[in-house]
């Protein structure tokens, strides 16, 4: 009797450990695929978590930001490569839309629509949205583009293979292939300046203070004040990119 009970408990033990071992093997085989479930993990609050606010009502379309960005980051001068640019939207009285961005706003904006036909017109500065669920980071096959612990989307130019999948995946057109480096290139929120305690170049040169950036963890930052006092909107919210570039006064025509 006792012997039998011992046997059955031993059998149970073997069965249980086999189950455990099996779970471990299956679990470790499945584990790498957990990364396929895509969701942003906001890191612990030991580092700032940067976001950007742009006040469309204050933007005067001078293009200083676009110029400063090219100078600061050695972006190629040709009009096909931009980390930061300005668009002018003009909505006519008949409801049609005219958009322009001459050389990304570096050249002068010339209004081609006669004054009498204009319903309203405004400038929209564009730059990387530093999305929390970046579609561009998601698709990089090798891990050459990533979100830094500060929430800034960066490109590792020594590791990028130049497949351009990230350029296809960015809904905002914020990436380009650097013609000399042959790697993807984009706004770094002037990471090199932030780390030196300086403001990003486009924020420094904005004459009207239309741009602010700040730490979303810091509830007293000017950015929080901006978000609290204005009804802000992100671009293409339906794509759920977790964009951290918030616009005040964004018209529904802007894409």
């Amino acid at each position: 009797m006792g012997n039998e009970r011992l046997n059955s408990s031993r059998r149970n033990f073997i069965r249980k450990s086999a189950l455990l071992a099996g779970t471990l093997v299956v679990g470790s085989a499945v584990k790498p695929f957990q990364a396929m479930l895509f969701a942003a993990n906001e890191p612990e609050k030991t580092m700032p978590w940067y976001a950007i606010g742009i006040d469309i009502e204050k933007c005067i379309g001078c293009g200083s930001c676009a110029r400063a960005c090219k100078a600061e980051n050695d972006v190629p001068k040709e009009p096909f490569f931009f980390r930061s640019w300005v668009e002018q939207y003009t909505i006519k009285n008949d409801g049609t839309l005219a958009v322009q961005s001459p050389n990304g706003g570096i050249d002068d904006f010339v209004q081609t629509v006669p004054e009498a036909e204009i319903f309203k017109s405004f400038f929209v500065p564009k730059m990387c949205n530093h999305c929390a669920k970046s579609p561009c980071v998601q698709v990089c096959p090798v891990g050459a583009t990533y979100e830094s612990p500060e929430g800034i989307v960066l490109v590792d130019e020594k590791y990028c293979i130049g497949c351009r999948y990230c350029i296809q995946a960015c809904p905002y057109g914020c990436r380009y292939l650097h013609p000399e480096k042959q790697t993807a290139d984009k706004c770094t929120l002037c990471y090199h300046r932030l780390k030196k305690g300086l403001n990003p170049a486009c924020f420094d040169v904005c004459p009207t203070g239309a741009r602010i950036y700040g730490d979303l963890h810091d509830m007293n930052s000017p950015l929080h004040k901006f978000l609290k006092e204005h009804s802000t909107q992100v671009l293409k919210p339906q794509l759920n990119t977790g964009s951290k570039l918030f616009y005040n006064g964004l018209s529904s025509e802007v894409r």
């Binding site: 990364a35 400063a68 100078a71 600061e72 891990g143 050459a144 583009t145 990533y146 979100e147 830094s148 960066l154 590792d156 130019e157 020594k158 590791y159 770094t188 002037c190 990471y191 090199h192 300046r193 780390k195 030196k196 300086l198 170049a201 420094d204 040169v205």
Partner: peptide, 18 residues
């Protein structure tokens, strides 16, 4: 994370122009 951590230092070391 799934990236080269040193690349952040390399970007941070770039000279500021403004």
């Amino acid at each position: 994370g799934h990236y080269r951590a040193n690349s952040m230092d390399e970007i941070a070391a770039l000279p500021a122009h403004h």
